[in-house]
Structures are given as C-alpha cells and as structure tokens.
Amino acid sequence: MDNSQEDQEAQKTGTTRRQFLGQVGLASAGLQLVPLLSKAGSMLPDNEAAPAEPVTVSLMVNGSRKTLTLDTRVTLLDALREKLQMTGSKKGCDHGQCGACTVLADGRRINSCLHLAVMCEGTEVTTIEGLAKGEELHPMQAAFLKHDGFQCGYCTPGQICSAVGLVREGHAHTDEEIREQMSGNICRCGAYNNILDAIKEVQTA
C-alpha cells in the first residue's frame, strides 16, 4: 500500500485517518480503554507511536459469541477473515467502494471494511456463512444459484448479503429501484441481470 499521503497527513496533523478512526471507534464503543485513549489522545507523531494495545472484543457472529483479543486497528472484515477464518466476506477494495465485504449488522447491510471490529461489540453480525440453515440454503442463496447471479464468485457473498438487506428494507419495488439500491455492490464479471432476477424471485416469493 502506498501510504505516502497518509504519512504526509500524519506529519501535518500528528495523526492518521486510520488512527483517528480508531480513536473515534474506541470512544464510541465505550470501552474501558483509558490508558490507550490517553496515549492516542496525546496525538503523538507516528514515528513515536506506541504499539496498539490489544483489546478484548466480544463479537456475536452468526449467532455465536466470539471473543477475540485484537489490535484496535483491526476492521470487522479483517477480524472475520484473518482472526475467525470466516473468509466468505471478501476484501475487494478495503475502502467501502466495492461492496464485496457487505455483511448484515443487526439486519442492516454494512461494509465490514469500514467498521472497526471493536465498534461491533454488541452488534449481531450475519455473514454469508450464517445465511443457510444447515444444508438448506437461504432463499437468496438458492436464487443466486438458480439464476447464475455470479461468475467468479468473489463479489457474491457481498451481493447476497446486500440483497437480503435490500429485501428486508422493503424500499425497492421496481427493477430500477433494485438496481439503484444494489449499486454499492460491484460485479466486475457483470452478472447484474441475473442478480436482479434472483432478487426479484425472492421478493415475490
């Protein structure tokens, strides 16, 4: 990763966007992190930054509680993929621009790369691995399979989670509205027609 820009920002402001997000995230998570916060709060320049101290986070993923000791900078996506070996959620851009990392947080679709894991304490996270009931596919998964709503499969978990969220939101009533509201999920293979068909089938079921 080319970090020069972030690096320059750090020299100017004494903090990086990632660190700042980390601080905000920690604060909003309301965790007992006084020593860490006070350190980060002193806005030390990067090159003097103390190691991020590990934090214990309790995540509820697909109905099961996962307790992790994490670097506070770990995103929800990386926690899922790298710490919990739940690699169904994909990293396509790490910037919330492609949608491959979409998961459901309390039923609402989010880009898991834009959420720090420590922000998700108390959130019910549902990933692609949590949609099927045993061998029985979730209707959206079955519809994607039937309508060939994918090719390479890399955007697919995000598309499916997003589609499940979209149906639950209940705002998309026309093809046009479904397309618009699914536009945060890029499929470079171009299975868009088929994804639309899959969503419509589930909506009208």
């Binding site: 169904g88 692609i128 399979l145």
Partner: peptide, 29 residues
C-alpha cells in the same frame, strides 16, 4: 447450475489469500 455454485453462494469457495495456513505472516509492500 454451476457445480461450484453452492460453494460460491455460501462463502465456501477458497481464494488465494484465504487458505488456512498456520503461522502465516503478512507482507505489505
């Protein structure tokens, strides 16, 4: 239907960075 479809819609298809290798270290260029 695609024979690999079930794996792809359940998140079970394993891509390069996802193989569960023990003791893996991370490289960033």
């Amino acid at each position: 239907d695609r024979v690999d479809g079930r794996l792809k819609v359940t998140g079970g298809a394993t891509y390069a960075a996802e193989f569960p290798v023990k003791n893996v270290a991370y490289g960033v260029t």
